[in-house]
């Protein structure tokens, strides 16, 4: 009995200490800023320099890699066109990073990949269109840290801007493998960048940064995809606010030069209200069928606008031209 009661008395404080130590098991990470140009020409290289810190609150004996991810338009094919390096206060010279191998699972996100888990947590950052992807790198070198270690690292991402004119908000993520996106948000950070513009490229500007009246998803498609066109009426004051119904009025252009008009303002072109409240409407179509494209023809583009039920009100772009959508694949 004595030994048991002694054990019980020792058990409680011992476990409290374990719990407290458990709470202190942390390396807080920080992204203090990311430097990059506000614009880049299509096809040219752009560099992002992230200033990061790691502050250990205990010894961590498990070798750990630094994980750094960034968000880029899918059209950039950034996984194939990017190098990642860093310099730190504990290394000599420039250190290299590699793409996190496909299928690698973060320690605390079973069943998810690194990029999948980051997307689940942060989506597409502050961007309003989702044709963006996360690309995750990790340090080729592993580190063990000691209590009170303060590590700083400047991580340099060098990538090639894609061929299309667009604006988007680069977004960055920092963590380390021994944490593996755990429950404590002090161990990982996201940094929302300001808008970056790609100029001198192909096509009309695709704006990921700010909502426009119109949007189309996915941004790249053929006539055999399902494409969703939306009217986002709450972006600013417009004449269609209060309309009973909103209709999709479109002209599709085929590879043979034919123009196919669908502007009947009937049930087939009526847009669905996306939310109960607000003024966002959308229509999802299979373009090949919607425009009854003749056999052997392909659609190359679309011009569209939004109309009320009797066609007396029409919303086009700020220049008074229809919105345009080009069918192409990356």
């Amino acid at each position: 009995m004595k030994s048991n009661s002694t054990l019980s008395r020792e058990w409680l404080p011992g476990n409290i200490i374990v719990v407290i130590l458990g709470l202190l098991v942390m390396t807080c990470v920080y992204i203090d800023g990311v430097d990059y140009a506000s614009s880049v020409k299509a096809g040219e290289t752009i560099t992002f320099t992230a200033h990061t810190r790691f502050e250990a609150a205990e010894d961590r004996n498990n070798p750990s890699r630094v994980v750094f991810a960034f968000l880029a338009p899918k059209s950039w094919n950034a996984a194939q066109n990017t190098t990642a390096t860093y310099t730190s206060n504990i290394d000599v010279g420039v250190q290299t990073m590699s793409l996190v191998p496909a299928g690698t699972v973060p320690k605390n996100r079973p069943g998810e990949t690194w990029t999948g888990a980051i997307r689940a947590l942060y989506g597409v950052g502050g961007n309003v269109l989702d044709d963006l992807e996360w690309i995750a790198f990790w340090s080729d070198k592993t580190y063990t840290v000691r209590n009170a270690d303060k590590l700083t690292a400047d991580i340099v991402i060098s990538t090639v801007a894609g061929p299309y004119n667009l604006r988007f908000k680069p977004t960055f993520f920092l963590n380390y493998t021994d944490d593996g996106i755990g429950s404590n948000t002090d161990h990982y950070k996201v940094y929302n960048g300001t808008c970056l513009e790609v100029t001198d490229g192909q096509g009309d500007i695709i704006d990921f940064c700010e909502l426009q009246f119109n949007s189309a998803q996915p941004l790249t498609s053929t006539m055999n995809d399902f494409v969703t066109y939306s009217f986002q009426g709450d972006v600013e004051e417009n004449d269609l606010i209060g309309a009973e119904s909103i209709y999709f009025c479109a002209t599709a252009y085929t590879s043979g030069g034919e123009a196919i008009v669908r502007c009947s303002l009937d049930e087939s072109s009526r847009m669905k209200k996306v939310f109960q409240f607000g003024n966002t409407y959308s229509i999802t179509i299979w373009p090949a069928s919607y425009f009854n494209v003749p056999e052997g023809e392909e659609l190359v583009g679309l011009e569209y606008s939004f109309k009320n039920e009797d066609g007396s009100i029409e919303v086009k772009d700020k220049s008074g031209n229809p919105y345009r959508y080009t069918f192409y694949c990356q």
Binding site: T222, N224, D225
Partner: peptide, 9 residues
């Protein structure tokens, strides 16, 4: 992927 290979359904 019936359209662009980048679009998965």
């Amino acid at each position: 992927s019936p359209g662009c290979s980048s679009n998965k359904y």
